[in-house]
């Protein structure tokens, strides 16, 4: 098996991460923002798994499982708020939420 250098994995993870992040900042729809957050978290997961396998340790995978849990919890909360938002504002445009400022 050709060993893929760790740096490549990390760079891949970084690219994924950046894509996710760009999603967060460009999407107006709240649902897409939540999805982009998932992408970011999964990118981190890739990095952990890659690093874990490079060091031949289970730690990376453990972390990945923890991250999955986190992602689930976050999405649960996010969706709950999303419903609230839809109820109250009849819209999912995140830019509506800008009353607090200054």
């Amino acid at each position: 098996m050709i060993a893929i250098p760790l740096s490549h994995i990390l760079i891949l993870a970084s690219i994924l991460f950046v894509i996710g992040f760009i999603g967060v900042i460009t999407r107006k729809n709240t649902l897409f923002i939540l999805m982009s957050l998932e992408v970011m978290l999964n990118a981190v997961g890739v990095a952990f798994i890659g690093a874990g396998s490079a060091w031949q340790q289970a730690d990376g995978q453990v972390m990945f499982i923890l991250i999955l849990t986190l992602a689930a919890a976050e999405v649960a909360l996010g969706l709950a708020l999303l419903i609230q938002m839809q109820r109250r504002f009849k819209s999912l445009d995140i830019d509506n939420l800008s009353k607090l400022k200054g």
Partner: peptide, 15 residues
Amino acid sequence: CASSFMLLGIAFIYS
């Protein structure tokens, strides 16, 4: 978002 940044950071440090 910030947590993901932190996690990515941790992943890098770990790597």
